[in-house]
Write a protein that binds this DNA or RNA. Structure first.
Length: 471
RNA sequence: GGUCCUGUGGCCGAGUGGCUAGGCAGAGCUCUGCAAAAGCUCGUACAGCGGUUCGAAUCCGCUCGGGACCUCCA
């Protein structure tokens, strides 16, 4: 899939494709597929903005920050990896960089020229879209009509080198002030935006591969152009299935630099942003994203994030409760509730169906939520554990582990798993039980209240047991 | 202007032509030394107007609203 451009910090919008594809990656492996997950790093500043001078974002930013371009690239790459770790995403199997594949890109451009679909002008090379469109369907992915593209009357500067407005750059001649530049058959320059993906995908995945992902905003022209380039070079359509995630919006508008509504991931986690009421945990973001189908837009708001935070906690607490039930002994005189058993079995059986239907993570989560009252009800002794067959309890526990942890990729939000803390908490619980036993409510309340002040809530349960969670 | 997507109860959101999505918030009840959880119950929503159909939030048309792409963009 298309990875990040490391010319700046990632923002909330960037989180969506990586979390979405992390789940897809996890699910494919869960199904037993051997997956090669390639996600490139765009670290060459080859950004040509139509209508303006060809601009190199990384060079520009490097001058601004008084850094070597590669220092800048390293800084933001590290930051990106850190954020991905916060989200608990699994690293791709190959993470190639654009600058590390200049040779492959040049080779591909040469092949395109030899095939007659590329032409050189003043040290730059362009792809001949018109010629390509004569024999291929340029626009089949994005639904674009080639004639519209060719006939657009809009006049833009910096276009005079191109034979046609719809043509795109494969290689750009570097102006003297350009820092990032490479030697090529056409002089010193830098690669065009679309060619890196084609070159790296071809190298690591072959002429044709199964799935290519990215944000919907890359559909045109990026992916469309990728198809054209690769098709000419490799004589086959490069991709069997395209998966595009939709955008995250703020007040109904796409999050993006040009809209000035960006929330960087560091700001999101810390809460240090005017639009944020408080910091958001990475797992909350993950849940927030997976609660919506990846092809729908997802509207950001503080309320929605709070709802996601509480929802995830409810689900995770139920998972903990489920483990506790597992630890209890199953009654010998169990009388199964047929209706409840059937309901649970149905909810479990539907999970793979939903996931197989275009990765319906939202529906998977909804089913898991429907299991929550069953789990909590049994834990609170509202009905006997024996209402469900023992094997079904095991299956539920395994299902939560598989789906919540392995496939959807959630992990504990708190430090509650630390063994030492658990020991300390057990000690406090024992003391409080003793105090309650002799009706010393002043002491028992003190323990509970002070823990609450520390952000740990202690709950009395039926039968005199106590449980605790970190808020 | 062109291409396409979309409009669901207070909020976020899923969705198949006929069956309660789910989460958050809110109300009531139960449990409880108190508290917090938890459990149970509740709103009966699908922009508007037509049409197709035995039946439509789900299909078609129109109107209105929102958005994306057509320039870098996840």
């Amino acid at each position: 899939m298309c990875g990040p451009t490391v010319s700046g910090e990632s923002h909330l919008g960037h989180a969506r494709p990586y979390i979405t594809f992390d789940v897809i990656y996890r699910y494919l492996m869960h199904l037993g597929y051997k997956v090669r997950y390639v996600r490139n790093i765009t670290d060459a500043g080859h950004f040509e903005e139509e209508g303006r001078e060809a601009e190199d974002k990384i060079s520009k930013k490097a001058i601004l920050e008084k850094l070597e371009p590669m220092e800048l690239v390293q800084k933001y790459t590290n930051l990106f990896h850190w954020a991905m770790e916060q989200f608990n995403t699994i690293s791709p199997t190959i993470e190639p960089t654009a600058t590390g594949h200049i040779v492959e890109q040049i080779g591909m451009i040469q092949k395109i020229i030899e095939a007659g679909y590329g032409y050189e002008v003043n040290g730059s090379v362009y792809f001949d879209v018109k010629k390509y469109a004569a024999s291929h369907d340029y626009g089949k992915l994005s639904g674009r009509v080639i004639d519209d593209l060719l006939e657009t009357t809009r006049e833009l500067e910096g276009q005079e080198e191109k034979r046609d407005r719809a043509d795109f750059a494969l290689w750009k001649n570097a102006a003297p002030e350009h820092i990032m530049r490479w030697q090529s058959p056409w002089g010193e320059g830098f690669p065009g935006w679309h060619i890196e993906c084609s070159a790296m995908a071809t190298k690591y995945l072959g002429a044709q591969f199964d799935i290519h992902g990215g944000g919907m905003d890359l559909l045109f022209p990026h992916h469309e152009s990728e198809i054209a380039q690769s098709t000419i070079c490799n004589h086959t359509a490069p991709v069997r299935y395209w998966i595009h995630n939709n955008m995250i919006t703020i007040n109904g508008r796409k999050m993006g630099k040009s809209y000035n509504n960006v929330i960087k991931l560091t700001e999101l986690f810390s809460g240090d942003h005017p639009l944020l009421e408080k910091g958001v945990h990475p797992m909350t973001v993950r849940f927030f994203i997976l609660q919506t189908h990846y092809r729908s837009t997802l509207d950001f708001s503080n309320d929605a994030l709070v709802a996601a935070e509480k929802g995830l906690k409810r689900l995770w607490d139920a998972f903990d409760n489920l483990k506790k039930i597992q630890g209890e002994s199953y009654p010998a005189d169990a009388a199964n509730d047929a209706a409840l058993t059937e309901k649970v079995q149905k909810l479990l059986a539907e999970l793979p169906e939903y996931m197989n239907d275009d990765f319906g993570t939202a529906r998977v989560l909804a089913n898991l939520f429907e299991l929550v009252p069953v789990i909590n009800g049994a834990k609170d002794k509202n009905f006997p554990v024996g209402s469900l067959p023992q094997a079904l309890w095991s299956e539920m526990a395994a299902t939560f582990q598989t789906w919540l942890v392995d496939i959807l990729g959630f992990r504990s939000v708190t430090e509650a798993d630390h063994a030492k803390l658990q020991g300390v908490m057990q000690l406090l619980i024992d003391i409080r039980k003793e105090a309650k036993g002799r009706k010393d409510f002043a002491l028992s309340d003190k323990i509970r209240n002070q823990l609450t002040a520390l952000g740990i809530s202690l709950k009395d349960e039926k039968g005199g047991e106590m449980s605790w969670t970190i808020e």
